[in-house]
Computed example of a mutant assay.
Amino acid sequence: MGILINVFVGLHIIGIAALLGGFFFQMKAMRTGEARFVPGMLHGAFTMLVTGMVLVGLNQAADEPVDNFKIGVKLALLVVILGLVYVKRDEEKVAAPLFGTVGALTTANIFIAVLWT
């Protein structure tokens, strides 16, 4: 079970990398007002959602402690991220504050995962 959990943790990190990498790739365009949500950001967010749900299930099945409040906060942030990216995915330009919100929420999600014990 431990190996399976580690595989999904790796996939979860790949999803984070896709989402945050897409954000960093567009930061220069954000300054000029030309930023847009690239498809990799949407795929990364969906990957985070699916692998996160699997990780919660696997940890509960392995009788590992799961902080449901922490998971709820992370899920709420991810739902907002997914909603923003999904709704605005076809637009040629996304407002800088909206684009920055996705980056900030993604970063907050990472810090919650790492620092909240």
Rank of each mutant, 00 (worst) to 15 (best):
G57T: 04
V94F: 02
M1Y: 13
L78V: 04
L82E: 07
V114N: 04
A61Q: 10
V102R: 13
E92T: 13
A18K: 03
A18T: 00
F37M: 09
A61M: 11
H12C: 05
E64F: 10
V114L: 13
G100R: 14
V66M: 02
M27L: 15
A17P: 10
H43L: 05
K28N: 10
L105C: 14
I112W: 12
I16W: 05
V80P: 02
P97Y: 04
Y86S: 14
L19M: 08
P39R: 09
W116F: 11
G2V: 13
I112K: 05
V7Y: 11
F37D: 10
A45M: 04
G40Y: 03
A96L: 03
A108S: 09
E34A: 13
G57A: 07
I14C: 07
E64C: 02
A95C: 02
V114G: 04
G100H: 12
L84Q: 08
G103V: 00
W116D: 01
K28D: 10
M41V: 08
F23G: 15
K28S: 07
G40Q: 08
V79I: 14
A35Y: 10
H43G: 03
I5V: 09
H12T: 06
T117H: 14
L58N: 05
L78D: 04
K28Q: 05
V38M: 13
L77E: 03
G72N: 07
N59G: 02
V38L: 15
G15K: 00
F99E: 12
D90N: 15
H12K: 06
A18C: 08
Y86W: 08
Y86K: 06
I13D: 07
V114T: 09
V54K: 00
L98F: 03
T117R: 14
T101N: 12
L4D: 09
F8W: 14
L105N: 11
A76F: 05
F111H: 00
A35D: 11
Y86N: 13
V85Q: 06
Q60N: 09
F111N: 01
G33Q: 03
G10R: 01
V94T: 08
G44F: 01
M30K: 11
A96Q: 01
A96K: 06
I3A: 15
A104H: 02
A18M: 15
I3K: 08
K70N: 12
F69D: 13
L82C: 11
